[in-house]
Simulated scan of single mutants.
Amino acid sequence: MYRKGHLGASLVVYAPLGFLVTALASIEVGVVGAAGVASLASLPDVDVRVPFVKHRGITHTVWFALLVGVAFGVVGLAVGLQRGVVGGLLFGGAGLLFGTLTIVSHLLADALTPMGIRPYAPVWDDEYTLDLVTAANPLANYALLGLGGVVVAVALVAGEAVPV
């Protein structure tokens, strides 16, 4: 998929968390989470700009997703520790989850294409593809973007409606 498709996929995957975050905190926090997830949606495609890194190689694996998740978890832990140990663990866990799921959403979107993904490389070389649409298909990319926008908007509004 292209940038718009990845953006939509990240919002679809974030929507359940966005609902929860909005219900527990506020719609502002839910929107900031959506913006954060959306801003990282195309991070695995940095491989097209890095010499000697194969496209849909290491940056399109669960290992990269975990690396990004751990990095965000460490930042969350550091920020949360200002509120105590419980705050540190909560923020750290949220950072781990958000970072990991953002990259996983990218992998899921790329699995829709004929090229597919090898999410466990180099440990296992199994390829996964649903072979539904090409990555360059503008209709598929815009449809995924639209779906993501609608799903996350509904999730955030529903989360705001939950009585606290």
Results as ranks from 00 to 15, higher is better:
Ala136Leu: 14
Thr134Cys: 07
Ala78Tyr: 13
Asp126Trp: 15
Trp63Phe: 13
Ala158Pro: 08
Ile117Gln: 00
Ala41Ser: 10
Phe98Arg: 03
Gly36Met: 03
Arg3Phe: 14
Ala78Asp: 12
Leu20Pro: 10
Ala34Cys: 04
Arg56Val: 02
His55Pro: 03
Leu90Ile: 15
Gly73Phe: 05
Thr61Leu: 03
Ser26Pro: 04
Leu101Tyr: 02
Val37Lys: 00
Leu96Val: 10
Gly30Ile: 03
Leu24His: 08
Leu20Glu: 12
Gly149Leu: 06
Leu112Pro: 05
Ala140Trp: 05
Leu101Phe: 05
Asp45Pro: 00
Leu11Phe: 06
Tyr14Arg: 01
Val29Glu: 06
Val154Lys: 12
Ala161Cys: 15
Ala23Leu: 04
Ala153Phe: 12
Val50Gln: 10
Trp124Glu: 13
Leu89His: 07
Gly18Arg: 02
Ala34His: 00
Leu139Arg: 14
Gly80Lys: 03
Ser39Asp: 05
Trp124Val: 14
Arg56Tyr: 04
Gly149Glu: 10
Gln82Met: 14
Thr113His: 00
Gly116Val: 02
Glu28Pro: 13
Gly33Tyr: 02
Ala65Arg: 03
Gly30Cys: 08
Val157Phe: 15
Asn141Arg: 07
Val75Lys: 11
Thr134Gly: 09
Ala143Glu: 11
Pro119Arg: 03
Ala34Trp: 00
Pro163Gly: 11
Val157Gln: 15
Val48Phe: 15
Ile27Lys: 11
Ala35Asp: 00
Asp110Ile: 00
Gly5Asp: 06
Gly88Trp: 07
Val12Pro: 01
His60Gln: 00
Ala161Thr: 13
Tyr2Val: 13
Val133Pro: 02
Val70Trp: 04
Thr113Tyr: 00
Gly148Ser: 11
Leu108Pro: 01
Asn137Val: 01
His106Ile: 01
His60Pro: 01
Gly76Glu: 05
Val79Thr: 13
Val150Tyr: 12
Leu107Val: 07
Ala121Ile: 11
Leu81His: 12
Gly149Trp: 08
His6Met: 10
Val12Asp: 01
Val164Asn: 13
Leu108Ser: 04
Ala135Glu: 05
Arg49Tyr: 09
